[in-house]
Each structure stands twice: as C-alpha cells, then as structure tokens.
C-alpha cells in the first residue's frame, strides 16, 4: 500500500504575469505516496503556496500555469489529469479528492454563517442526494472528531478561538474523506501549545483515516518531526527531496544546510545561532 503513488506532479511551472514576470514555480516534479506526509519547506515567497494552489487550480490571474501536469491516481484505479478537467469536473474534484487547510485560521471561515452551515455546504454541493438529518449528523460527527464538539454547530466563527477555528477547518477538510489534504501553514498563526495539539490531532486522524498530507511550512524543525519525506524549495525550484532523517543527518544542498542552521538549537553553544553573515552576536555584546 505505502509504495503506491497518489499524485504525480511533473514539470510544473507557474508564472505571475506582471511586469517583470515572476517565475514563482519552476519545473517542479514530485511524487506523493499514498498515506504519506510530505513536507514542503522554504522561506516566504519561495513558491510553496503557489505550488499548492496550482495543484488545485485555485490560482487567479495574473498567475498562469505555463507548463506541467498533475495526475491524481484515484483509489478506484483511475488516473485523473487535473489540468485537463473542465470547470464543472474541477469543482466536483476539489474537496472530494483533495481538500485544503489554509494559512489564515482567522479568516478562512465566512463570518456571517454558522459553522454548521459552512460544513453543510460541502455536503450540499458534493453529496446532493444526502438527506437533511444525515447531513446534520455527519457535520456534528466531524466536529466531535476534531474535538470542537457538536454543540458548536450553531456557533459563528467569531465566537470561537483561533485554535478552534483551525480545527473546524480541519473537520471541513475531512468531510468527504479525501485521499489528499494540502495543509498550507495550518498552524503558523497559532501559539506553540495549540500548534502542538493540532499537529497531534492531524497525525491521529491520518493514522485513523489514512489520507496523504502535503504539509507546507517555513518551520523546518516541525517538518522534521512529522513528515515522512521533505522537499526543500527555493526560488520556485525544489532543491532537495529526501526522507526526514536523511535530510536532517545528511543535507545535500547548501540551502538546506543553511535552513537547518538558521534554527537555534536548545542545547547548542552560545553564539551557535548566527543568521546570514553579519556578526549579530558581536553587536549585541557591544550594546550591553
């Protein structure tokens, strides 16, 4: 099972058609195994999010997909070329096969609709045959599953904390039992404790339901902990793709080494942590 491929991205490029044009993603190719957590790391603006949106074809002008294919290998054995789907088929594909959890936990929910309504929207669109009571029960079950609790169905987003909202988003992403979940910095806006809880929840759910995850973040240590494999991205190119352990113990690319070194170690020597080339430590010493 684990060696089966779920998603093949080949030669994928996205250009922002502004003046001058920005090549946000350049000839990216990668394969995702079924049930795997693939980490996608890189600094801000390196094209991680653009790649993720591109896979779901959510990019808006001026972004243009200039080359490449994304093929989704469905459970049923069917291969779906995402770039070849028409608008209706694309809408039907979204969320059903691949769902997303977005960066801004605070703004990802419609402020004027209840949580329940927004969860139900998913079923109304993708499972039109479902009966009302069934739908309700399904939504309530989802909220229970992520630990928000079914009594929150009638709450509005502003009545929930940031952590709870992000859990609601995760519940929503799982609604249709998708085979892949793309998580774009799902925990960045949250404090470390809530972040930890949510990550554990994601791992638990994945163990239970067996979906694959593409986890996008700039937080490399976090990825080292949760991912099976990690892709390091810089300026729109994947510079290194290796298992978490290999990447940590034996980074091949210069940039990966710098990225790893840019995080302070808890046990390291004083002055171990130097960003870039400026002698920061010296100036702090002097100003004391």
């Amino acid at each position: 099972m684990t060696t089966e491929t779920l998603l093949t991205v080949s030669d994928f490029s996205v250009v922002y058609d502004v003046d001058p044009p920005v090549e946000a993603v350049r000839h990216v190719s990668l394969e995702l195994e079924r049930g795997e957590i693939l980490g996608l790391a890189g600094e801000s603006g390196c094209g991680k999010t653009t790649l993720a949106y591109g896979i779901q074809r959510l990019l808006k002008a001026p972004a243009v997909i200039t080359s490449g294919h994304t093929v989704f290998h469905d459970e049923s054995g069917e291969d779906i070329d995402i770039n070849a789907l028409d608008a209706d088929a694309m809408r039907a594909f979204r969320w059903d096969k691949v769902s997303m959890v977005f960066q801004g936990a605070m703004n990802a929910l419609n402020p004027v609709a209840t949580i329940g309504r927004q969860l139900e929207d998913v079923f109304l669109t993708h499972r039109p045959g479902m009966r009302r009571a069934e739908r309700r029960e399904e939504c309530a079950g989802l909220l229970d599953l992520v630990g928000v609790g079914r009594e929150r169905l009638r709450s509005y987003p502003h009545e929930l904390s940031g952590g709870m909202r992000q859990r609601v988003m995760i519940a929503m992403a799982m609604a249709l039992r998708p085979q892949l979940m793309i998580m774009d910095e799902p925990t960045t806006a949250l404090d470390v404790l809530v972040q930890r809880e949510i990550l554990e929840q994601i791992s638990d759910l994945r163990a239970k339901l067996g979906f694959s995850v593409i986890f996008i973040t700039h937080d490399l240590p976090l990825l080292l902990e949760i991912s099976d494999r990690i892709a390091v991205m810089k300026d729109g190119v994947i510079v290194e793709l290796a298992s978490a352990l290999d990447l940590y113990s034996d980074p091949q690319h210069e940039y990966t080494r710098r990225l790893l070194a840019s995080f302070p170690s808890l046990t390291g020597e004083r002055g171990d942590f130097v960003r870039g080339s400026e002698p920061q430590a010296a100036t702090t010493e002097a100003s004391r």
């Binding site: 809408r91 929207d121 988003m169």
Partner: peptide
C-alpha cells in the same frame, strides 16, 4: 480577496453559491 472566498472555491462550491452566500453576503 478574503480567505473565506478562496476556501469556498476550494470546497468546490458552484460560482453562484460563492458569489451570493460568501462574497455578496458579506
């Protein structure tokens, strides 16, 4: 440009639904 509109699109809702229930409603 709000995130919830992008989310609504990612959810695969029909454009009419995104336009009325999510965008225009706000």
């Amino acid at each position: 440009d709000e995130d919830y509109v992008t989310v609504a699109e990612a959810k695969g809702l029909s454009p009419q639904r995104v336009m009325t229930r999510y965008a225009a409603r706000n």
